[in-house]
């Protein structure tokens, strides 16, 4: 039973995290001042602008 409860909590947490990520990607898509690359997290993004922006926040 305790395994089921913990599993459900973890799945809910994962769902919340991915949903939030999705929300921010769409949010950045509608904001012309933001770069989507800042949220996509790909290794190639180190060539884009987001690293400097994140460092300076």
């Amino acid at each position: 039973m305790w395994q089921t409860i913990i599993t459900v909590l973890i799945v809910a947490l994962a769902l919340f995290f991915i949903g939030k990520k999705l929300y921010y990607i769409v949010k950045q898509a509608v904001d012309p001042k933001q770069d989507i690359s800042c949220s996509c997290g790909c290794s190639g993004c180190s060539v884009s602008n987001c690293n400097s922006r994140e460092t300076n926040k």
Binding site: I36, S37, C40, G44, S48
Partner: peptide, 16 residues
């Protein structure tokens, strides 16, 4: 090249 022309890039900054 940014998108991975040599392998290892990302299409997002490539598109931008």
């Amino acid at each position: 090249i940014v998108s991975g022309g040599i392998a290892g890039g990302c299409a997002v900054p490539g598109v931008m």
